[in-house]
Design a binder for these strands. Structure first.
Lengths: 191, 191
DNA sequence: ACCTGAACACCGTTCAAGT
DNA sequence: ACCTGAACACCGTTCAAGT
């Protein structure tokens, strides 16, 4: 067991290695997507593969750490939008959906992990995905009550749609189309 | 070079092996998706891996043959819908979109191949994807001219949206949601 | 003309041995 | 307490040797 999972402070070299691994992993995943060779990440961080595994037992555990900051920011955004009861609920929901869709397109393959992580309780990403999904629940219900989105659309539907928007953006070779396609997919929410 | 690519008739055993490979490949891909181990397909077909490669030099070449019949059926459907000039153009486009979305969800991972194959001219699936995409062009233009879909939506957008619908259906663990989500994603086309 | 299966490459994952 | 890197497993792909 490593120190990080037992609450004890990590040895200085371990902390440095962990930080380097995360930094290089971010670079490599931005270039090659969520399926990038772990060996390459370790090499670029200047450590052996075993060290990577010691810090992050699975690929998804590594991915979860990489996403942590952005997840926190999204939770905060969700709270902020929910707290602002006077804002037009349709617009609030759309701002939320766009933010999560952007997030899901940061690494190629991430949209699969997000929707898959919600559906699979065994995924290391499950809790984060569930929180992201439920953060949209209040916004969805308000928008629906105000008649600003389609009847019958659930928070689960919204999350699946957001994931689909991220997936589409991810696959497009022309980055100029990214915003347009995100808007188009999310426009399915219109009443 | 094999006989099949030179126009000469194949030897009887080769033809039998090819047919068996395609039949087993369909079964395996339905179970495990487009990334399934090729070794397993060969074993189930009772041949060595080399034989599979002799018939289908790449994974996508195999996939293209697996899809050929369904592609022909879709081309025919597209022609039929286009020929029927009296049908409501919005409905015709939606029938087309649903048919292609169903097709793109037959094997897990197929939606990636379809949209990716359209974007990548080097893909063995490129020509088929381009034909599928362009088959929707006339239907899209008619629907747009009749004001029955959103302004500014192109045939490329429709194909990307169809792929997104297939992807979403593919990822859902609950098959009962499949139709609902397909309808929701495609409802982005509404004016 | 076609098939076989061993050979090689690549990558994920583990773990005994080191510091 | 942490790191190294060899070892093993798995799969894609090629090709010399067979029929």
């Amino acid at each position: 067991m490593t120190a990080e999972s037992s609450g004890r402070p990590m040895r200085a070299d371990a902390r440095r290695n962990r930080a380097r691994l995360l930094a290089e992993a971010d670079t490599v995943l931005r270039e090659q997507g969520t399926g990038a060779p772990l060996e390459q990440i370790a090499r670029r961080a200047g450590v052996a593969v075993g060290t990577l595994y010691a810090h992050f037992p699975t690929r998804r555990a590594l991915l979860l750490e990489l996403l942590r900051e952005r997840h926190e920011a999204l939770f905060a955004l969700g709270d902020g939008l929910t707290a602002d009861a006077d804002a037009p609920p349709g617009e609030a929901l759309l701002r939320w959906a766009r933010a999560v869709a952007d997030h899901g397109a940061v690494y190629s393959g991430l949209s699969d992990e997000l929707l898959g992580g919600l559906e699979d309780p065994e995924s290391e990403l499950h809790e984060a995905c569930a929180r992201l999904s439920s953060a949209g629940t209040t916004l969805t219900e308000r928008a629906r009550a105000a008649g600003q989105i389609r009847a019958g659309v659930t928070a689960d539907d919204v999350f699946a749609l957001i994931s689909a928007a991220a997936w589409t953006r991810d696959r497009l070779s022309d980055p100029a189309r990214a915003d347009h396609m995100t808007n188009l997919v999310l426009s399915a929410l219109r009443p």
